[in-house]
Design a protein around this nucleic acid. Structure first.
Lengths: 258, 258
DNA sequence: ACCTGAACACCGTTCAAGT
DNA sequence: ACCTGAACACCGTTCAAGT
């Protein structure tokens, strides 16, 4: 047990893809979208800029990995951790607690998944733009499948005919991503920079937007003019859940339980 | 009618914000996301890079203006022109199918608005990323209000109680933007570059994605594994309309006509 | 194998200088 | 007022050179 052989705690930890992604997330969280830079990353990891490319290959790939990491942490685990599904001969104790999935309705589980993403975006404002970017850049790869799986399982648990699974899940995922994108609350200030987000600032922000809607020509924008006050007073989270509820109603109304 | 006073067609037209935005759209259309550059723009307009900043002030502002222009062209006019129901100067893509006429039900009008955006994204692949970016950057300003107004008017025409106008419209808009974002069909190739998009390429693309889903560990991704074939065979436009229909069902089921 | 860091080919933006 | 275009302060990425 030499004294100098192990400084693993904090000093010269070997560079790895995992450590780089972790540092990238921290940088994005603290400095904003524009804060993630190969040079900044290298400095934070006490290494040269070129070293990054030995583990990551690409800035886009790094952003994708950072996004995937945060998304995975925000969603329920893929495998229920308590019991291994690979062990069919394991005897079930008669008093075994039911699995977490079976406790609530599928609707509640969908709401939980959606809120997990919603909250992740509040915690990591850069995530909204990244989710959207990833959705447009690699629609079926990268982070989307992870979200699709979490939602789709619950759709399957609803009384949705098999042929509608894909369309139904797509609708939910698209809504969640669209709604989530708008809730980044990163005002316009020339992208990047640390994020605001006190309650007072949010209120001020909505006030300004509401006034802007009210100042629009009522002949061009009669609707916006009408609901400018409704917009100012809306609550993001509540509105988000209302949307989920609307879609769930549409789903179950189309295929009533039988 | 002088011979030399008007060379407005192509030569030394005075630089203007409008002309710059127009050139930006062309550049984005032909060269892809990465093709819009102040230098490229200046060259295309036969001017210096600094001249751009006399009219636009900002790259972000320019992107916003380009997005707003294309979106406005894709949506029905804000004021109904009293006489002619048709819009003669609207540039229609050569193979664009006709959209449902707005003379029908509010539901059909909503579908028409949504399809207008859907088709605009097909025609301008860069639009998907820009819509998403604008949604996250200035959620209530820029292009969102224009879309909100078009959808909201039709929501008002449905039997939705006034207090639900905002939430209902938000839900539709969020879904439309989320679904639209995924339909950019711009594969991963290091953003920018001219876009692909033959039918064969699309099919190949979906095939690869479907195979990728099938190759996932069925213990981690049972749902994706199950619907991989459904994903491959889905038709974007039809799926998009199914989602709209689902939400419309939810809306009318929640507030039945009375 | 892993890392260094100068160098390269780009960006957006500015600004003295021209007309 | 409008435009020019060199210059500035950045980027991401590469690659000979080190260990």
């Amino acid at each position: 047990m030499g004294t100098q052989t192990r400084q693993s705690q904090r000093r010269r930890q070997v560079l790895s893809r995992e450590r780089i992604v972790e540092a990238a997330v921290e940088l994005l969280d603290t400095e904003g979208e524009g804060g993630l830079t190969v040079r900044a990353l290298a400095e934070r990891l006490s290494t040269g800029s070129g070293a990054i490319y030995h583990h990551v290959g690409n800035m886009g790939e790094l952003l994708q990995a950072a996004t995937a990491t945060v998304v995975a942490a925000a969603l329920p685990p893929l495998r229920t951790s308590t019991v291994s599904p690979q062990n069919p001969d394991a005897p079930r104790p008669p008093d075994a607690p039911q699995t977490p999935d079976s406790t609530g309705s599928p609707e509640d589980a969908i709401r939980a998944v959606a809120l997990g993403l919603f909250d992740a975006v509040l915690e990591h404002p850069w995530l909204a733009a990244q989710l959207a970017a990833q959705l447009t850049r690699s629609p079926w790869g990268a982070v989307t499948p992870r979200i699709f799986e979490s939602i789709g399982r619950q759709v399957r648990a609803l009384d949705v005919p098999r042929r509608d699974w894909f369309a139904t899940t797509s609708t939910l995922v698209h809504y969640i991503l669209g709604a989530t994108a708008q809730n980044a609350q990163t005002p316009d200030g020339t992208d990047g920079g640390p994020f605001p987000e006190t309650a007072a600032e949010r209120s001020e922000f909505l006030d300004a937007a509401s006034r802007a809607w009210q100042d629009l020509d009522p002949d061009d924008y009669p609707f916006l003019h009408d609901i400018a006050d409704q917009m100012r007073e809306h609550e993001d989270r509540e509105q988000f859940l209302t949307g989920i509820g609307l879609i769930l109603t549409g789903i179950t109304a189309g295929a009533p339980a039988g």
